[in-house]
Design a protein around this nucleic acid. Structure first.
Length: 478
DNA sequence: TGAAATGTTGGGGCG
DNA sequence: ACGCCCCAACATTTC
């Protein structure tokens, strides 16, 4: 090991364990850990408000864990390249290491940074801490990208091994102190404190991520295959924000689950969700325009409606459909939404309200603590039917039926819509069909304490089917 | 990882 | 006993 320090550039890999680029850095010399706040470099997708809240706390945790080892996290803001160059000059570092990112703007930025540093004579070493497989490594027989999940995942499982996770390195600290901002100076936290629900729900940071994984393995993995669609239960891993910020890596999750001794069905079902995460990155890598353009070009002329009041009702959880509204309030309050509920609220926005999926993607981007460009893009295009392996155009979720099926006691609705909590389970998903005595007894006045439905689902469904069928027929004609 | 419309079947009430 | 109808339950088709 030489004496020249090595800069490690933390981004969305805010952990010490299973971080190959960090292992490389520690092997080469004393480590100078750096975080640069450069939201402009994420193009049209700088971190949203919920993501910034998470980032602040995750950086605080990382900083504390580094400090335990005698390392000081250097916090900067501005241009990533300028700041990395500055830190390299201040410390005499001749090497910069980081974990690769895969979103379009970040890829481009990273290439420019790497080129410029190499021109300076600085060595650049990158690693993969974010994905099981490199997005460009998996390909069909003729070398093209996959557009359907099942063959993609089958190929992943047969073609490639998931490497065992790497242990934490034991980096030594660089001697010279380096100027750093205080984390608070990045102003990542909201000015008005709306984050109480987030604080009550989450523990950002590497330790919180590992605790969440352990809790999942100990309880919810058993029975995952059947209970995963129940938003009223704590039946999913809720690892998504930890994975997004790289507080835990997919290899760690993968191997922990394989060792867990659960049923094949539960295990494979959960691992296939990790597969969807890989598939999303595969698609975004090959089709970077899909962040706001439909993958199927004919959808560029889909007749989306312009309805600010409808969009506002959806965002605030005031559509009059309890399952939809409970889910939207779960998002607002906790920064997260159950996957089944995501599908239902997305279907409602796109098909019942005929509002553009991009508007939904934007709202999710700002409010989700796990907002991830790859997964968010895939999910919305899937729902709208304009993406890869998309839902068929005629698949329209019934917000009442989905609620009765996946929240049978109405406990999910009751938790997030206290104004309906006293309604009997039989009508809590369709309060407009409750009789007057039931409503009065539950203290519900439709249109007053809780909104009447903004659209009639049966009518809205027919309207959506007509619009989608017209688009398809116009496409067939030429 | 849909839902609604339509078709089929069979039990039971009833004249 | 028989035919008829109703309708629930299930299956199939359609969007």
């Amino acid at each position: 090991m030489s004496n020249a320090p090595v800069v490690f550039w933390f981004r969305q890999d805010l952990r010490l364990a299973d971080n190959p680029a960090l292992v490389e850095a520690a092997r080469r010399g004393p480590v100078v850990p750096v975080f640069v706040w450069a939201p402009d470099e994420d193009g049209d997708w700088p971190p949203g408000a919920a993501s910034r809240w998470w980032l602040h706390h995750s950086l605080a945790d990382l900083s504390a864990r580094l400090a335990e080892r005698g390392l000081k996290l250097v916090v900067r803001a501005g241009s990533s390249l300028d700041e990395l160059r500055a830190v390299a000059n201040e410390t005499g570092a001749r090497t910069v290491c980081w974990s690769r990112r895969y979103e379009p703007a970040a890829r481009q930025r990273d290439e420019q940074v790497a080129r410029a540093l190499r021109r300076d004579g600085v060595e650049v070493v990158t690693g993969n801490s974010a994905l099981l497989f490199e997005p460009d490594r998996i390909a069909t027989g003729d070398g093209s990208p996959y557009r359907v999940f099942t063959p993609f995942w089958r190929r992943c499982l047969t073609d490639a091994e998931v490497p065992a996770p790497l242990p934490k390195p034991d980096p030594t600290a660089a001697e010279a102190p380096v100027p750093s901002l205080d984390l608070g100076e990045l102003r990542l936290l909201p000015e008005v404190d709306w984050a109480a629900g987030l604080r009550a729900t989450w523990t950002p940071g590497e330790a919180g991520a590992l605790a969440r994984l352990d809790a999942f393995l100990g309880v919810a993995l058993d029975g995952y295959a059947v209970d995963r669609d129940r938003p009223d239960l704590a039946a999913t891993s809720r690892l998504s924000p930890h994975l997004h910020f790289g507080e835990i890596g997919p290899r760690q999750v993968w191997h922990a689950v394989r060792k867990a001794g659960t049923s094949d069905e539960d295990r494979d079902r959960f691992l296939s969700e990790a597969g969807w995460r890989e598939f999303a990155h595969h698609l975004l890598w090959h089709f970077p325009d899909t962040v706001d353009q439909p993958l199927r070009p004919e959808f560029a002329r889909f007749p989306w409606r312009d309805d600010p009041a409808g969009l506002r009702a959806w965002r605030r959880g005031r559509t009059g459909y309890p399952f939809v509204d409970a889910a939207m309030r779960q998002l607002w309050r906790t920064g997260w939404m159950h996957n089944r509920a995501r599908m239902v609220v997305a279907s409602f926005l796109v098909k019942d309200l005929l509002l553009p999926w991009q508007a939904g993607a934007r709202w999710f981007w700002d409010t989700l603590v796990d907002a991830d460009l790859a997964s968010n893009t895939l999910g919305w295009q899937w729902t709208a039917g304009c993406g890869a392996d998309a839902a068929p155009y005629f698949r329209v979720f019934n917000p009442v039926g989905q609620g009765e099926k996946h929240d049978p006691e109405g406990a999910f609705v009751a938790r997030y819509l206290p104004e309906l909590a006293a309604l009997p389970a039989l009508v809590i998903h369709q309060p407009w069909n409750a009789d007057q005595a039931e409503l009065r007894q539950a203290g519900v006045a439709l249109g007053v304490t809780y909104p009447a439905p903004v659209v009639d689902h049966a009518t809205a469904r027919r309207r959506a089917l007509t619009a989608y069928r017209d688009l398809r027929e116009a496409g067939d004609g030429g």
